[in-house]
Simulated scan of single mutants.
Amino acid sequence: MKQLENKVAIVTGGVSGIGKAIVERFVKAGAKVVVSDLNEKLGYELVNDDTNGNIVFIKADASSAEDNKKIVDVAIENFGALHIAVNNAGIGGPAAVVGEYPIESWQQVININLNGVFYGMHYQLPEIEKVGGSIINMASILGSVGFAQSSAYVAAKHGVVGLTKSAAWEYGTRGVRINAVGPGFIATPLIEDHMDQETQKHLASQHAMQRLGKPEEVAELALWLASDKSSFVTGSYYPVDGGYLAK
Rank of each mutant, 00 (worst) to 15 (best):
F26I: 00
F26P: 00
V27A: 07
V27S: 07
K28R: 12
A29T: 12
G30T: 08
V34I: 15
V34L: 10
S36V: 03
D37K: 04
K41M: 06
G43E: 09
G43A: 12
Y44I: 08
Y44A: 02
L46S: 05
V47C: 12
V47E: 10
V47M: 10
N48M: 01
D49S: 15
D50G: 02
D50F: 02
N54W: 10
I55K: 01
V56W: 03
V56G: 01
F57D: 00
I58S: 11
I58T: 14
S63E: 04
E66M: 07
D67M: 04
K69N: 13
I76L: 06
E77K: 15
E77D: 15
F79S: 14
F79T: 09
G80R: 15
A81G: 13
H83G: 09
I84W: 02
I84F: 05
I84K: 04
A85N: 09
A85T: 09
N88A: 13
A89T: 02
G92P: 07
P94Q: 13
A96E: 02
V97W: 06
V98W: 05
V98L: 15
V98K: 03
V98N: 04
G99D: 15
Y101A: 09
I103K: 14
S105C: 12
W106K: 09
W106R: 06
Q107G: 03
Q107N: 14
Q108V: 08
Q108F: 07
V109I: 14
I110G: 05
I110V: 14
I112A: 01
V117D: 01
V117H: 01
V117R: 00
F118N: 03
Y119A: 02
G120Q: 11
M121W: 11
M121K: 10
M121E: 13
H122I: 05
H122V: 02
H122L: 13
Y123H: 11
Y123L: 06
Y123D: 01
Q124S: 13
P126G: 09
P126R: 13
E127T: 08
I128E: 00
I128Q: 00
K130G: 03
K130H: 10
K130C: 11
K130W: 12
V131Y: 14
V131M: 07
G132H: 11
G132T: 12
S134H: 02
S134F: 03
I135E: 06
I136P: 08
